Simulated scan of single mutants.
Amino acid sequence: MELEDIAILACYISPNIPLEQYKREVDDIMDAVTEVDKKMVIAGDINAASPLWGSPRANVKGEHWADWIASKNLSVQNKGDMPTFVRRGSATFIDVTLTTRGITNKVKNWEVQTEESLSHHRIITFVIIQNKIMSTSHLRGKAEIDHETFQQVLSIFENKITNHTEMTQAIKRAQSAATFNVRPQRRDQPYWWNEDIGKARSRCNAARRALSRSRRISQVAEARVLDMEREHRERRKEYKKLMNESKRSEWNKLCEEIDQDIFGQGYKIVTRAIRHINTPYNLTQTEKEKIVRELFPEHEDTVFPSYPDYRI
């Protein structure tokens, strides 16, 4: 996926393939990194172990990755303080985020989230800071300073400062230009969300946190850990069941409503999603027309046969 001057490469390599095939797939990924002339984030489930991203020991696959990381001058964003894959009694570090040199310092707040993901893989989040000049008068909560931008702006005033007051003003302007709000935007809940699902998610997260704590405490009896694992599975099953039931029910309601009112809730959901799409592509009119023709091909008018009218 390409976004302006940044490319994001998502990858997965199966742990069940032969080692030589695994190495070839890693080589193909690195070839792609070379071919794309953009700053790049490489993120994925690579099923390899290395202390570079938190594993206690390296395996052959991890050493192959480490060789490529060194040769390509890549940086590992993983902090290595929390496993990314947890299943029963095992916890591993197999989900890795790499960056090329041009974007390494722009990736902030890389975190393994603790909320329930309905998967053995945990959710990983991070923020990419762009060099954009912006006012900070509206910012609330946590913010970050882009030091490169700060220095660039401050250098503009460097030869114009004659006293401490002008120095203070120059620092304030540089700070204002280089400060970015990194608080994630609040997402609207999907149309099928309800209070029961929210409570089930809270119970599921609480059970998962309790299980994680018990695994870290050696004094907790094994039987108690097994009980907590069972509790977590049940809570996750309940959470998933409520979501699936609500999705199915609300989808059927939307379909029925569209037959009655095409500008109802279904129309609002679609237009709301389209409104937030910010495409990174600058298409020519010819390219747009080609896409329309591919998606909506022209057909000859269908002529339906006529039948005698048997009505009395």
Rank of each mutant, 00 (worst) to 15 (best):
T104I: 08
L3F: 13
M134H: 05
N105P: 00
T114R: 10
H147P: 07
V153D: 09
E2K: 14
I197R: 00
R230V: 10
G89T: 03
I258D: 04
D146T: 05
I13T: 07
S137M: 01
I258M: 10
S246E: 09
E229S: 08
R230I: 10
I29H: 00
I133Y: 09
I124K: 02
M1I: 14
R293T: 00
V225P: 01
F296R: 13
V220A: 06
E234W: 01
E63F: 00
H120C: 07
G198R: 04
P184K: 12
I171A: 12
I8A: 03
I17Q: 03
G44T: 09
S214M: 13
R140V: 12
T302V: 12
Y191V: 15
I277E: 01
V76F: 06
L98G: 00
R122C: 10
E234G: 04
A70D: 11
V292F: 11
K23T: 09
E116D: 14
A143I: 06
P56C: 07
W65Y: 09
K38A: 03
E231L: 05
W68Q: 06
E2D: 12
V26P: 00
P18N: 10
T284F: 04
Q169S: 11
G62A: 02
R233T: 09
D309T: 12
F157G: 00
D259G: 11
W68D: 06
I94W: 02
Q185M: 08
D95N: 14
A91D: 04
R213Q: 11
R24G: 04
P297H: 10
Q265D: 14
V292Y: 07
D196A: 06
D67L: 04
D196W: 05
H138R: 09
V26W: 00
R235A: 06
S249N: 11
Q130N: 13
R24V: 08
T84S: 15
Y307N: 08
K160E: 10
A207V: 04
N278M: 07
M30L: 13
A48I: 11
N159H: 14
G102F: 14
D67K: 05
R140I: 08
T34I: 07
Q21Y: 06
S135M: 06
K39Q: 13
L154W: 10
P83V: 01
E35H: 05
Q77M: 13
F296K: 09
E238R: 11
F263V: 05
I124A: 03
I128L: 15
G80C: 13
E2Y: 08
F150M: 13
E289H: 07
A32Q: 10
G264A: 12
K241E: 08
D27L: 12
R311C: 04
L242H: 01
A206H: 05
N59H: 03
F150H: 13
E116I: 03
T136A: 08
A43G: 15
R213V: 05
S176T: 15
T286R: 14
E257R: 12
V60Y: 03
W251C: 03
E234L: 06
D227G: 04
N278I: 14
S137I: 02
K253R: 15
P83S: 11
N73L: 09
N47T: 11
I269G: 12
I123A: 09
